[in-house]
Deep mutational scan, measured.
Amino acid sequence: MATADDFKLIRDIHSTGGRRQVFGSREQKPFEDLVDLGWLKRSSVDSRATHYQITERGTSAAL
C-alpha cells in the first residue's frame, strides 16, 4: 500500500524528468518500494549506482 512519502517521492521524480540515479543500498529502499508498487522500474544497475525510470503507472500516481 502506498504511503504519503511514496506519493511525495514519485511527484519529485516526475517533476525532475522521470529518472533518478541512486548510490548506496540504504538510499535505494524508498525507490525499491516504488518498484514494488509498479511506479518505477530499474533501468540499469552498475557497481556504484542504480538507475530508476518512472513508469506510466508512476506518472498517473504523480498527477
Rank of each mutant, 00 (worst) to 15 (best):
P30L: 06
W39P: 00
G38P: 00
L34G: 01
A61T: 04
F7I: 10
D46S: 11
T3K: 08
T50R: 08
D12S: 12
R11Q: 09
F23V: 15
E56N: 08
Y52V: 01
G18M: 02
G17S: 05
M1G: 12
E32D: 11
I54P: 01
T50I: 14
T55L: 03
Q53D: 08
T16D: 08
L40V: 05
A62V: 05
L40N: 00
K29H: 06
L34F: 02
Q53C: 09
I13G: 00
L9S: 02
R20A: 12
P30I: 06
W39S: 00
T50V: 14
E56Y: 07
L40I: 05
A61I: 08
W39L: 02
D46C: 10
T3N: 08
A2Y: 06
I54E: 03
S43N: 10
V45A: 09
F31G: 00
A61N: 04
L34T: 00
I13S: 00
V45K: 10
F31C: 04
R42C: 07
S43R: 08
Q21N: 08
S43C: 14
F7Q: 04
S47N: 11
K41P: 01
R48G: 14
D6F: 06
H14P: 00
A2F: 06
S60F: 12
A4F: 10
D5A: 12
A49W: 14
G58T: 00
D33W: 12
T59E: 10
T16C: 11
A61Y: 04
R48H: 14
A49I: 11
D5V: 06
R11V: 12
W39M: 02
S43Q: 12
A4R: 10
E56M: 08
D36K: 14
S47R: 09
E27T: 08
S15V: 10
D6P: 05
V45H: 09
L40Y: 00
E56G: 07
R26M: 15
K8M: 10
S44G: 10
S60Q: 14
F23D: 13
R57W: 10
F23Q: 14
E27Y: 10
R42N: 04
E56C: 10
Q28H: 07
A2L: 04
T55P: 00
G38S: 03
M1I: 13
Q21R: 12
I10Y: 00
Q53N: 07
G17M: 05
R48Y: 14
D46N: 11
D6M: 12
S47C: 11
G17P: 02
G38W: 02
P30C: 07
T59S: 07
T16S: 12
R20H: 06
R19H: 15
K29E: 08
D36T: 13
M1H: 13
D12L: 12
Y52F: 04
V22W: 03
I13H: 01
Y52G: 01
H14S: 06
V22H: 04
G58S: 01
L37V: 03
T50Q: 06
G17N: 07
T16P: 01
V22D: 03
L37A: 03
V22M: 04
D6G: 05
A62I: 04
F7V: 07
P30E: 06
H14D: 03
F23S: 15
E27V: 06
I54R: 00
S47G: 14
I54N: 01
A61F: 05
Q53M: 11
P30K: 08
D46W: 02
R48L: 14
Q53I: 13
D5L: 09
T50W: 07
R20Y: 07
W39Y: 03
T50F: 08
D46H: 07
L40D: 00
L37R: 06
D12K: 09
D33C: 13
V35N: 02
D6S: 07
L9A: 03
V35H: 03
G58N: 00
E27C: 15
V35C: 10
T3A: 05
F23R: 12
R42T: 07
S44D: 09
G18H: 02
V22N: 03
R11T: 07
D36C: 12
K8G: 06
D36H: 13
R11S: 07
T16V: 06
R20N: 04
Y52W: 03
L40S: 00
T50N: 07
K29Y: 05
I10V: 06
A49G: 15
G24V: 07
V22K: 03
D12W: 12
R20M: 08
G58L: 00
A49V: 13
L9C: 05
S47T: 11
A2V: 06
T59F: 06
L37G: 01
A49K: 08
Y52K: 01
F7P: 01
G38L: 04
E56L: 09
R26P: 11
D46G: 09
K8H: 09
D36S: 13
R19S: 14
G58I: 00
T16W: 06
S44Q: 13
R42K: 13
S60A: 15
R26F: 13
F31Q: 01
T50H: 07
G24A: 08
S44C: 15
K41L: 13
F31K: 00
F31R: 00
G17Y: 04
S25F: 08
D5P: 06
Q53E: 15
H14V: 07
D33H: 15
P30G: 05
A2R: 04
P30S: 07
P30V: 07
K29F: 04
K41A: 11
A4P: 13
R19T: 13
T55I: 02
G17R: 05
F23A: 14
A49C: 14
